[in-house]
Design a protein around this nucleic acid. Structure first.
Lengths: 213, 213
DNA sequence: ACCTGAACACCGTTCAAGT
DNA sequence: ACCTGAACACCGTTCAAGT
């Protein structure tokens, strides 16, 4: 939607920290603006102005608007999701399970953004009629992922943080939910939607921990 | 992405049927262009030109782009997926909600199988850098889907089959789970996995009906 | 009431030019 | 290599003016 009015003389917007290079200033500005809720206003010009750089500079570092979004979301997610092993008993069980499931959203090849990662999956396992070898490869990958989630669940059961139950079914539920979240991350969701994606995973984890699944 | 080129001399586009009034000509044009896919940007100007009306006329009937999208998608969806199903009180609430959510797994163009349907979604909204128009198109479709699920939930609440609660959140949960199931249907799952996909949806529906979400 | 088309305020992207 | 800012081709919306 076009805003149709302008000329606000207010310049109360915070500026990026001093020492940062252009690229980081841009990411800082974009992340800040996203967290401020003004999601729709994440235009090239708005971000560039906030970062204190030109649109050309922004495009030099992020050739496309999508590239900017991907890089920014990676920053945001990395802040929220610290890399932690699920055997670390100093972390609450809920967060350990959440971290384990959320790790699935960013496939092993984590230099790639969510979008590129998904494009790879699509091309390899969906686009072309998958060969028998491809099917096997995917299923092996999937069962490794499944194994890890189940192991995490079993650890929690051993600790007594989770009542014994159908581990396979619980893992399947979490994986299905994670797949749903993953695909929503890649589709052009509304801004409000993006904010609730992590909440969906949290809900799923809580359901399992509350023995509802 | 802006297209940056213009001046196509081709004028092979079909025109709307003769007898139609402006409003229906517009809806006809928009629906046709949507079904033609191929990145057809559903912009005001493009739809207006195809319908043979001015942008002003279009705005007179549909004050906002969103209003146009909503009206058009309602037409398209009603052709394939009649809305009446979930008001039939002779069917158990659980099955009505399940039917409503399951309907989402089969996109409007139901002549296609799950795989072809998914390939279309992928190509239109993921593969290519989505234009602003494409984003809007997807989001409008998504909100129509969302509207239907929420309406179904509200009907169940009115009947007393479901305690009042956060309808938006419940719908989001079911949609995310449905997305997860949809993508698992398309990926080369193991046979055992396939058998449990519908069970996952059933589980989600039960969780909502048991007021766990 | 219905419709027109120009004008306005945006948008993402490209690019010659600077340092 | 990094950065600038103008220019291009779009976009949705508004509005005085016609019928």
């Amino acid at each position: 939607m076009a805003v149709q009015r302008v000329g606000d003389t207010e310049r109360a917007h915070p500026t990026p920290p001093e020492g940062l290079k252009s690229r980081d200033r841009i990411l800082w500005a974009a992340s800040t603006m996203l967290s401020e809720g003004a999601g729709a206003a994440l235009s090239v010009r708005a971000v560039a102005e906030r970062a204190g750089v030109s649109t050309g500079s922004l495009r030099h570092h992020f050739p496309t608007q999508r590239a900017l979004m991907d890089a920014m979301l990676k920053v945001v997610f990395d802040l929220v999701l610290p890399e932690a092993g699920f055997r670390d008993t100093t972390i609450p069980p809920r967060d350990r399970l959440l971290g384990c499931v959320q790790g699935l959203l960013v496939p092993p090849d984590s230099t790639l953004g969510a979008r590129e990662a998904w494009l790879t999956v699509h091309e390899r396992y969906i686009a072309s009629e998958p060969t028998q070898a491809m099917r096997a490869e995917y299923q092996a990958m999937q069962s490794e992922v499944n194994r890890r989630v189940e192991e995490c669940l079993n650890v929690l059961v051993e600790e007594g943080a989770l009542p014994a139950g159908d581990t396979t079914r619980r893992a399947r539920f979490l994986l299905t939910l994670a797949n749903g979240v993953a695909i929503e991350q890649v589709l052009p969701s509304e801004d409000a939607h993006i904010a609730t994606e992590l909440d969906m995973l949290r809900t799923g984890v809580d359901l399992v921990l509350d023995n509802r699944i």
